[in-house]
Amino acid sequence: MALVRIDGLHKHFGSNHVLKGINLKVERGEVVALIGRSGSGKSTLLRSINGLERFEDGLIEVDGERLHAGQTNLRDLRQKVGMVFQQFNLFPHLSAGQNVMLAPEVVKKLPKAECESIARAMLAKVGLAEKFDAYPDQLSGGQQQRVAIARALAMQPQVLLCDEITSALDPELVSEVLAVVKTLAAEGMTLVMVTHEMRFAREVGDTLVFMHEGRIHESGAPDTLFTRPRTPELANFIGSIH
C-alpha cells in the first residue's frame, strides 16, 4: 500500500482554482520531485500534505492517517510528516540543538536527556555535530537549512516534504544541502520535494511529477520525462530551463 495517497484534491484561493483534482501515490522509500512553472500549484500541493494549506475537496492519507477537507486536528498526521522550508524558519531564540530538541520534548514528551541525544545524533547526521550550541544567526544559510533538516528528522517522520529548500541559498551553499538530501534518499527516506534543481531531481528522483495549471500534467521516471516528454508543455518547460 502506498505511504502517501492523494485522492481528488481540489483547492481554491478565492476564485482561483489552484488544484484541480490531484491524484498521487507515493510508495515508501520513493523520492518524488514536483516540477513546474511558478503558479502551477506544486508548492500548494506539497503544503496540503501536512495541512498547512486547507483544501475543499478530496482526501490525503499518510501511513494510515487520513486528512479530510476542513479537518482541524492535524497532530497525528503532522507527527508522520516532516517539512523543510525555503526560508529555513529556524527558531531564532533557540540554539541549533534546542531547535532540534523542541518537538520531541514538547510533542512526544520524551525525557530531556533522550531529546538531547536525539538532537546530537541528528545534527551529526547533517554534519553539524559541533554546532549544537550555535544560534541560527551564527550559522550560514546552508548550515541553517541543514539544522532545519535535522529538526524535521528528529520527529522520525515517515515522509519528508522539501519546499524549494535550496532556492534561498547562495550558489556555493546549495551542494552541501543537496548532499544531505541525497544521503537521506540513499537511506530509504521517503521524500516529496518541490525543486528547481533539475539535475538533482533527475539524479535523485525516482519519479518526476510535472504540474501545469493545477493538474498533474505528466509523471514518470525522470530520464523518460526529460528525454521523451509526451506533452508540448513539458517539452517547453524543459527547454526553458536548459
Binding site: L52, R78, G82, F91, L102, V106
Partner: peptide, 25 residues
C-alpha cells in the same frame, strides 16, 4: 509567518506554538 508554519509542521498545538516559539520572540 514562517515561525508559525515551522512549529505547526512539527506538530505543536496552538498553545505550544505560542508558549515555546511565538511568545518568547
Amino acid at each position: 509567518k514562517g515561525q508559525w508554519e515551522a512549529s505547526a509542521s512539527l506538530a505543536l498545538s496552538h498553545f505550544e506554538q505560542m508558549r515555546y516559539v511565538i511568545l518568547p520572540q
